[in-house]
Design a binder for these strands. Sequence first.
DNA 1: TTGACATATGTAACTAGTTTCATCAACCTC
DNA 2: GAGGTTGATGAAACTAGTTACATATGTCAA
Lengths: 337, 337
Amino acid sequence: MQKASEPKKRANLRDVAKAAGVSVATVSRVLNEPGLVKKDTLEKVQAAIATLKFVPSAAARAINSGRTRFVGALIPTLDNAIFARFLAALERKLSEHQLSLVVATTDSNPDTEAEKAKSLIDIGAEGLIVTGATHCAAMHDLLERTMIPTIITSFYESDNALPTIGYDNAAAAQLALHHLAELGHKDIAVVHGPVRDNDRTRARLDGLKTYVFDGKLTTFETQISHQGGANVADHICSLPRLPDAILCLSDVVALGVLLGLQASKISVPEQVSMIGIDDLPTSAVTVPPLTSVHLPVSQMGERAADGLAQWITTQQAPHSEKLHARLIVRNSTRSLL
Amino acid sequence: MQKASEPKKRANLRDVAKAAGVSVATVSRVLNEPGLVKKDTLEKVQAAIATLKFVPSAAARAINSGRTRFVGALIPTLDNAIFARFLAALERKLSEHQLSLVVATTDSNPDTEAEKAKSLIDIGAEGLIVTGATHCAAMHDLLERTMIPTIITSFYESDNALPTIGYDNAAAAQLALHHLAELGHKDIAVVHGPVRDNDRTRARLDGLKTYVFDGKLTTFETQISHQGGANVADHICSLPRLPDAILCLSDVVALGVLLGLQASKISVPEQVSMIGIDDLPTSAVTVPPLTSVHLPVSQMGERAADGLAQWITTQQAPHSEKLHARLIVRNSTRSLL
DNA sequence: TTGACATATGTAACTAGTTTCATCAACCTC
DNA sequence: GAGGTTGATGAAACTAGTTACATATGTCAA
């Protein structure tokens, strides 16, 4: 099957060694520890590498070192700035640890998540970053079988089997509700993304439900997008009576609601107060600027990167970390007292 | 929690073979072509795999097949929905070709791009998707040396050395300007992102400059973010005279400008017309809904995925493809005639 | 002159899989 | 009962690197 002249096969170490008239060990040294090689041998080999356009095979390297130098992140979507910000920090910090990042999106579907996780592991990921603590059975099984270092983010739970690096979602939501309650709001509309397969949203809603105050909460579920927020705003405007305030469990939805209210000529905060969660940079330039609960996602990215890198190199799982959310008061909320 | 001091060496094929009392070839068959193995042997081997928690090494597989089954995408930032949309389509289509996607962000820095490209190739990427046609010397050298299949996106140029799959940026900008010109606008502010190291923005600006119309164009450079747009809006509002219209070379900036104008109580389109480029979903729900030039980024992602997958499997580079932008008229532009 | 040591390089054994080819038994046909 | 075919399995070669160990040469001191 192998004829004398093959058209184009990638050159390997042996080819280079033969071309340079040295052994494979010498070529390997040129690649990894050029200091050990005599100057003119070095040049001979480098010439051969150049003429053969030799590029070392990543797989062959990995097989020896047992390291592929990349990790995977499973996130619900890229279509929300909050994840973009998280990933930016994660990637920056990982690269300080000489690790590349492979991003896979799950569309918040646990089965997709398990599938993508499997393919990340198949292609050699050394560790995983996942969003939230709820996964399907296949995912749990996969993580247990492979024992791949995995950190849960956007979610804090001290006694989880896997380390969690994130914030207390219930507390973040309570921070927002507490602010509204203090301002005297009694009739509050809560707008949130899909509850199904999303433990962060559920935790936030639970936080609201367990917060004790003498007022009414009405929840509205929609898509996490500007469009989704605008749709809910239309619905709320068609109600016989406007709520005192609208609490959005994410800023993306909040901006959508804000635009929707504006389209219906409802003014914020004069007719309704509004508050969000996330504190995206955009929230500082909306009209009016949006009061929000700041979630430290950049910090979360950095801590997750450090934790995972440490776990991979030392085989020692990091401890869970609780990061603190804080209220940023702007002009979309006003006092009713 | 994880116990730290396990003598955890991962089981390999030979370990499984020994445990099951069969040869390595049989274990390999169980993994890849279970149909060839007798039923009770199969079960024996599967039992051994389960008890040893054996997971095949991706690297060792890759070394044989010469395939790592993933490609890399180099994009300027994740912090702009336009790229998020592109990546979503790209990833979806790549996975149909059994390819995973590794995303690397370059911050529009050519040196970062070259670095990230190198590390993608180092970890074994079989192909690359890059944004725009302008790269630093190190990048060109890398692409030439490794001959890695690489497709340029967001940019169309029929005679580029590498296949380009994208739109004509100059034409897209002209489409927007033509619309404003037809409505009788003479004094137009053009708001755009950084020109340095961004050939898409430059191409759009060149398109505007070569379009013949009897009016005035004033350009404003800012960051591509809502904040950046809002800053320019503040600046424009402080000018002695408002322009007739504001043409933004991206919708993200346009929404920022819109919010900034609104904060200064300038009404659109009564006092200024506004038009964007990208046509993000958000642009349909802004107040007023934003007239924009639709860029087919989802289609671009799909075509790029198909092209790259084809290139990798057939060794045959695809042809460049020009995708068509089209004007979406909403309510942010009005006629002055 | 010889031993001690450093430097430079080669040989061959690893890494963890896939794959080719050989072997052997069971079954079928003539 | 000889010969052919099929099915199941194993031995060993193969992928492309790294690396432990061996060897050859040169320098220097005893």
